[in-house]
Write a protein that binds this DNA or RNA. Structure first.
Length: 251
DNA sequence: AAGCCCTCCAACCGCTTTGTG
DNA sequence: ACACAAAGCGGTTGGAGGGCT
């Protein structure tokens, strides 16, 4: 059985939006707010499908959009986030205020891919192009304060591999290609308050260090000399109560 | 000036996920 | 548990515009 169309296609406009359509959409959302995209076109007097309205608003008309060229810092952040998250554009966009997933996706495909290739880096794997897939040492990303068996189980359940220094327990190596499928969930408060256990001689990297920001105040693995008093770490500079690294679950 | 090629990006399409009854 | 609707997401496309010959 086929999927029912999202709208009555016979009576909808397609293609580029006109100024009048934009104005109507903006006026309607200002008056009524976002939501109920399916019924919005009719209510706003637009001959567009709801999906189209949503996309137009999110990608182009939203007042908080930061239009214009990407800064060098934004480039680097996108590269790092892409290395961690893959093509999860909406998650990446969530870390770049004022940028949309569509914008970042386009920017990646048109600029950053080329930039990485010119550096000799495979934009898909983030490895040097000539490097064999199995080469190199395994780097362990340590989730701060999560090195007990019980705690690690939570991540294992979520699909994250951890390196645990415990004789009887298996050693979980970091999967070389982290194919993260992430979801947002409430922050995990309890773990965030537990002290960091460095796991003996195992050198582990916290997220901050794995992102190349050693020595930052957010480093929690001590490799970069960061303060161990940090109970959690700031995933790409955003230590918030709403979304921290623990809020990233993998399927 | 004209034609071709390339780049960029807005918008579309189809699939997945989430919410609801 | 199931079906359906709605929303969200990521891949892809197509057209506008600019550069080059």
């Amino acid at each position: 059985m086929g999927r029912s169309p999202c709208c009555e296609k016979a009576h909808t406009n397609k293609g580029a939006w006109t100024k009048e359509e934009d104005d109507r959409l903006i006026a309607y959302i200002r008056a009524h707010g976002e939501g109920c995209w399916r019924s919005l076109p009719k209510a706003a007097g637009l001959l567009r499908c709801g999906k189209s309205c949503r996309l137009r608003w999110i990608n182009y008309l939203r007042p908080d959009l930061k239009r214009g060229n990407f800064a060098e810092e934004e480039d680097e952040l996108i590269i790092k986030l892409h290395g961690l998250l893959g093509n999860k554009w909406s998650l990446i966009a969530g870390r770049l205020p004022g940028r949309t997933d569509n914008e970042i996706k386009n920017y990646w495909n048109t600029h950053i891919r080329r930039k990485l290739l010119s550096r000799g880096i495979d934009p898909t794997t983030h490895r040097p192009i000539n490097e064999p897939a199995s080469a190199g040492e395994v780097t362990t990303i340590s989730f701060a304060g999560s090195t007990t068996k019980e705690e690690s189980d939570k991540f294992i359940t979520a699909g994250i591999n951890l390196n645990i220094k415990e004789e009887s327990s298996p050693v979980f190596e970091r999967c070389p290609d982290l194919n993260l499928e992430l979801r947002i969930s409430p922050p995990y408060q309890q773990q965030a308050q537990e002290p960091l256990k460095t796991g003996g001689s195992t050198a582990s990297l916290c997220f901050a260090c794995s992102l190349g920001v050693q020595n930052s105040k957010d480093c929690s693995c001590n490799i970069g000399g960061g303060s161990s008093s940090n109970s959690g770490y700031d995933f790409v500079g955003l230590k918030t109560g709403i979304l921290d690294y623990r809020s990233l679950e993998m399927k």
